[in-house]
């Protein structure tokens, strides 16, 4: 019926007109769903985590007692086990970040500044492709690579070397591999924003390749490097699966959280441990903020 159709049209039109003349309503409708998600689910669960860390567990029944205490946090901060594991976790996360940056920089540079646009597209796909595969599959693949009769041993033994086996080194290699795309992509995007003419200008003014890199590329790339390092650093800080699969007997913070949730059934303790990586990331971002690099993001 034409009459009904035109009535509907005019209703849609009226809504559109109403929204057009009321920018605040428009903005409210646009943002209400994501904001609700962010506040209710995301921030609230973080707050719940903090609150849980201040509770305790009944030693006999294992039930959570909602009594306010700083015991868990004091325990986590002063306990030598937690200190050792925290240092180890931060060390692994730093190493993974450094390894990823060293591998990602030349790849990203090639993609952004050297490759033809066809090769560039192919490489973006190649970098993204590992993200389509399951995390577990990739970790187990590395378990086979690192094993004593694996491909790494087979490749290295003729050179008088051996596979690092299931160890922290294995963890660094595996995580470096798994998080690499998250580091390459921001660096690639950052390098794309450096016009070629700037590199030519530096060279024109007498700077050799390394000097150009140090004085022009690197300073302009700092925000991208920080963005990439936040990914590899924070993702490593919270991981426990890779450590279980290729880490041998080594433990990281994630493993402690996992055991406290599962085996030990001590959720408040797990929450207290989980606060450590959060505090470290806040510290890192605060330090980065001080350098002013975030203003260029």
């Amino acid at each position: 019926m034409t009459g009904g159709a035109s009535a509907r049209t005019s209703f849609a039109r009226r809504v559109s007109t109403m929204l057009y003349s009321r920018p605040r309503t428009r903005l409210g409708l646009l943002l209400s769903a994501p904001l609700a998600w962010l506040v209710l689910i995301y921030v609230a669960s973080l707050a719940a985590l903090l609150v849980t860390a201040l509770w305790t567990v009944d030693d006999y029944t294992g039930a959570i007692k909602m009594e306010w205490t700083f015991d868990n946090i004091v325990h986590v901060v002063t306990g030598s086990l937690y200190q050792t594991v925290t240092l180890r976790t931060v060390g692994v996360a730093l190493l993974v970040t450094v390894v990823d940056l060293i591998i990602a920089l030349p790849i990203a540079f090639f993609m952004a500044k050297v490759a033809s646009s066809r090769i560039q597209r192919l490489m973006v796909i190649a970098v993204l492709m590992p993200l389509w595969a399951s995390y577990l599959v990739k970790a187990y693949a590395w378990r086979s690579v690192l094993s004593h009769d694996g491909i790494l041993a087979w490749l290295l033994r003729p050179l008088g070397l051996d596979t690092p086996g299931y160890s922290l080194t294995g963890v660094v290699l595996t995580m470096g591999y798994i998080w690499l795309p998250y580091v390459i992509l921001p660096l690639y995007a950052g390098l794309e924003r450096v016009p070629n003419s700037l590199l030519e200008a530096a060279s024109d003014l007498g700077a050799k390749s390394f000097t150009t890199f140090r004085t022009v590329v690197l300073p302009m790339l700092t925000p991208a490097i920080i963005a990439g390092s936040i990914f590899s650093f924070s993702l490593t800080l919270g991981d426990y699966i890779t450590v279980n699969i290729v880490g041998g007997a080594s433990q990281m913070l994630g493993n402690l959280v996992y055991t406290n949730v599962g085996t030990a059934n001590n959720l408040p303790m797990a929450a207290a441990i989980a606060l450590i990586p959060i505090v470290i990331m806040f510290g890192y971002i605060a330090a980065v903020r001080k350098t002013g690099a975030l203003e260029n993001l």
Binding site: S197, E200, S203, D204, G206, M220
Partner: peptide
């Protein structure tokens, strides 16, 4: 020879000033 080994300098169309 590479640009840095040539005694010529360029004024670029987009100026190519270092933004940082």
């Amino acid at each position: 020879k590479a640009p840095f080994d040539r005694d010529v300098n360029t004024v670029f169309q987009d100026y190519a000033l270092f933004p940082h």
